[in-house]
């Protein structure tokens, strides 16, 4: 009952979500292998160093730089053989490929697993996370993606053996043109690890700059409540909540936001929530891990001035 992890590389680095996938796989199987599709054989070393991996299976071919999903999914399907599980961390990379592998194997994949209940029963979110479903699959082979926030990230104290597979590259009707990497001045709201969010308490557009300043200091994205957007402090792309963006960063710092349920709907799954508000009864505080009851301007000035 072995498991295969489809590894996602960022350059030569193993992505965080692949590390989560390893942890998930180790809950299901004693024998976890990793599969790497790459144009660069030297990438094997970072994968072999991952904790919890038995064998790294490398498919190396020049055409695999920016490979097409058609080619990649066929290669993976061919490697699957006796593996019971094919697991990858949830990302646009895995969500592009894994369902196609599923179709080739006649398997119904399971997306965004957050919890493993048994070897065929998993918990996954529906309705933008408002509902959690426990699902049981009857497929022989199980293909799934796992949420990287829901599992520990496996470390780097492993020493897996590396096996290189020879594979024939199939023809593809699609080709890579270019990649425009996002320039990370400030991280994008929905994918950011940290968000500093401001509400109506800021009082003006000028004051809202204090939020942006703190965000830059923390390498965080900027968010806002609807009241702040309505008041014109910031444009509506930054609105978090029921009618805005749904986010689940590691850190959500809510400044001058009362915590209306429509706002909570967009950020309640954040790992750590910090509230800065002068009203001890603000509903936001009930959701918080840390509460700083203070005038927000004092707090922002102190935070912006603080030498980390």
């Amino acid at each position: 009952m072995s498991a295969l992890i489809l590894i996602e590389l960022n350059g030569s680095e193993v992505s965080a979500n692949s590390r989560a996938a390893i942890t998930a796989a180790s809950q299901l199987s004693d024998s976890v292998d990793a599969l790497v599709l790459t144009n660069d054989a030297s990438n094997s070393s970072s994968v072999a160093a991952l904790s919890g991996i038995n064998t790294v299976k490398m498919i190396v071919d020049d055409s695999l730089e920016n490979s097409s999903v058609e080619v990649a999914s066929k290669l993976i399907a061919d490697v699957m053989g006796d593996y019971k599980y094919l697991i990858s961390g949830s990302s646009t990379f895995s969500k592009n490929i894994l369902p196609r592998v599923g179709a080739l194997l006649d398997v119904q994949p399971i997306s965004d697993v957050c919890e493993i209940k048994s070897n065929n029963t998993f918990v996954r979110p529906l309705y933008a996370g408002n509902v959690m479903a426990t699902v049981e699959t009857s497929d022989e082979t199980i293909v799934m993606t796992v949420r990287s926030t829901a599992f520990e990230h496996s470390g780097d104290d492993g020493s897996a053996s590396v096996e290189s597979l020879s594979a024939s590259m199939s023809e593809s009707n699609s080709s890579f043109v270019s990649l425009q990497e996002s320039e990370s001045e400030r991280p994008e709201l929905t994918t950011a690890d940290r968000i500093v969010s401001g509400g109506r308490g800021l009082g003006s557009k000028e004051n809202f700059a204090l939020i942006e300043q703190l965000a830059d200091k923390l390498d965080a994205a900027v968010g806002a409540s609807r009241a702040a957007v309505d008041a014109g402090f910031i444009s509506n792309d930054y609105q978090v909540g029921q009618t805005g963006k749904v986010v689940a960063p590691k850190l959500y710092l809510a400044v001058g936001i009362s915590g209306a349920i429509q706002h909570l709907a967009g950020m309640k799954d954040s790992q750590v929530i910090v509230v800065i508000n002068n009203d001890p009864d603000a509903p936001m505080s009930r959701m918080a891990d840390l509460v700083w009851q203070v005038d927000l301007f004092d707090a922002l000035n102190e935070l912006n001035a603080y030498q980390v």
Binding site: N236, Q242, T243, A260, I261, Q262, P283
Partner: peptide
């Protein structure tokens, strides 16, 4: 309070 009540009314309007 009103906001949590409103949530249950499902009220919504195109904002712009």
């Amino acid at each position: 309070d009103i906001t949590s009540s409103l949530f249950l009314s499902g009220t919504n309007h195109e904002e712009d």
